[in-house]
Design a protein around this nucleic acid. Structure first.
Lengths: 339, 339
DNA sequence: GTGAAAGCGCTAACAT
DNA sequence: ATGTTAGCGCTTTCAC
């Protein structure tokens, strides 16, 4: 038990050569004779040599790791973003460490400091809901550590970002509904302070205007992000004499609530009531096959963020410029026949 | 920009003392005069000195970090377990790194190797669904790295574990139902290969027997872990002439499905149909206030696992013994009036 | 083509 | 009470 990890020195001794030769041979340095290179590599394989990343990092001052801080780990949106990040990090040979701020600024600061301490080579971050000051963010910049923000960003920060175009996505969704024949489209949204909700409302209104439809404020319903709440709100709308013939909901729960309400009233979906919601979620399994959704492309968000980061880390020309990439959501149209 | 991190050497130079003195002063070593100790600590604060964990780990051969591998990160059960782990790790001054195997054995091995490489001091792991060989697990043991398994474990492995007593929990839930007056309790379960499903079935049957009730196999329904499936299965049961007056479901989705079915048929809950499900989930927001649930205590699972791990790491007497702790689920009884 | 030596930042004998 | 030294595992000049 307690097998000591094998070091470069062990290899050197067994082969009666110096550690520097081993080090070079391991990285296939052509200055070393093919013969010794092969001998070293063979032995390394046999001994299952694994370089000690701590020593490498200490020496080279880079850890080949990046850190990502998300507001919550229990969210398929962020989980998918992380997957996207991992994909491209993998291509670049980097390890990814993830931590969650749980929507607390304090935890976010702790995570950032931890990452900085661990000498991570770059940081990808989405601001927690509670984050109000940016000292920890500035600290990252002060230390010259590459960083990119995604999803929850701030205009006050001069950093590269990748965001979703919420308004455009909403616009596309609502346009789809209109072109499908909807005349009265209800808009289900959440608390007013949610930025993406406001943006999606913009897109909703814009689409209506473009099609020459009037905006009926009574069709705009605000409720909590729970299925229950959304269902009640939807029921209320649907029981009116002049009921909506379509719902556009800004997230999963709300869409499910609307659907549930429609079904409870025996209305056929999508013929009598069409529903389009946003999704990024396993929870879409709760959704009906007849419901179209906007896919937020979270994985793409992750990939773009990582790309931006690696651009900076590789010191490409102009890489230090502040960039902003917008990831568009895809409209997934599902027709009943699809099932 | 690019503020170099301050080192112990910087402090030593500014104070014209040696690095070892600084090192000692920083850890409040009483061998150092109070005077210099204070001077050092003051300067360290001013300069915002942060020890380089890489250097410390390289030197001391311990990284003060532990790694945890979970099958999936998008699961509130595992998320809560991690929280529990983080709590006690924090008390011990350890950092926690989490990675997900996504139910793939390959990724699990990769994660484990990564952790081992990073010289983490201990590993807490829950086996992925796909894990069939245990070389990577044995490697951890070979290297003498403390480890504890939780939730998804294997009898083939001689390691400390913390598990839930699924049978006992099911037993408690079903007993609760019986004592509430239920006469015909349906059992909603998932695919046969799921171990916890089999265990919960044992508890279900045992509870029935204890109360002198006969086991009606037609009340046992197997379906996929989706709300849709569970709803259909429940509808079928509820439409029989001799319908069940209660459901015991082995997870969230199934419980929700049962509830949905009951509601759709206009049956009152819990008066006409009582439902008890397991939960560990935010998804419980989908649940009705009238539904009682078994809380799996995931956080406690995490805490116990971490405790077991730190016991090993501190080389307490007998700590290397293989231990097994069982975490019991709590029955959360909800009555309608509670809301 | 290979080796010796220095050093990354820190700790811990071992002096003094 | 403090300094000197060695060394953790590795990379990288600089010699030869």
């Amino acid at each position: 038990m307690a097998n000591k990890p094998v070091t470069i020195k062990d290899i050197a001794e067994k082969l009666n050569i110096s550690v520097s030769t081993v080090s070079r041979a391991l990285k296939n340095n052509p200055e070393i004779s093919l013969q010794t290179r092969e001998a070293v590599q063979k032995l390394a394989k046999e001994l299952k040599y694994q370089p000690n990343p701590l020593a490498v990092a200490l020496k080279t001052q880079k850890s080949n790791t990046i850190g990502v801080v998300v507001p919550q780990i229990v969210s398929s949106f962020y989980a998918s973003v992380v997957k996207g990040i991992e994909q491209v990090a993998d291509e670049f040979g980097y390890q990814v460490f993830v931590s969650s701020s749980n929507e607390k600024m304090e935890k976010e600061e702790k995570n950032v400091n931890g990452f900085l301490n661990m000498r991570m080579d770059g940081i990808i971050l989405s601001l927690s809901r509670a984050t109000s000051t940016y000292d920890h963010i500035h600290k990252i910049q002060d230390m010259g550590v590459p960083m990119v923000l995604f999803d929850r960003t701030s205009k006050e920060l001069e950093v590269s970002k990748v965001v979703a175009d919420d308004a455009a996505a909403a616009h596309a969704a609502v346009t789809h509904l209109i072109e499908g024949g909807a005349k009265r489209i209800a808009f289900l949204t959440g608390p007013e302070y949610m930025l993406f909700g406001r943006n999606r409302m913009r897109g909703y209104k814009k689409a209506l205007k473009e099609k020459g439809m009037e905006i009926d404020e009574t069709l705009i319903s605000r409720c909590d992000f729970t299925v229950e709440d959304a269902k009640n709100a939807s029921l209320e709308l649907l029981k009116r004499s002049n009921r909506p013939d379509a719902f556009f909901a800004i997230n999963d729960e709300l869409a499910i609530g609307a659907m549930t309400a429609a079904k409870e009233l025996g209305l056929k979906i999508p013929d009598e009531v069409a529903v389009v919601g946003f999704s990024n979620s396993r929870r879409s399994r709760y959704m009906e096959p007849s419901m179209s959704t906007m896919d937020q492309n979270p994985k793409q968000v992750g990939r773009e963020a990582a790309k931006l980061l690696f651009d900076q880390m590789e010191d490409k020309p102009g890489a230090k410029d502040v960039k902003e990439v917008v990831v568009h959501a895809d409209l997934l149209v599902r027709t009943s026949s699809e099932r």
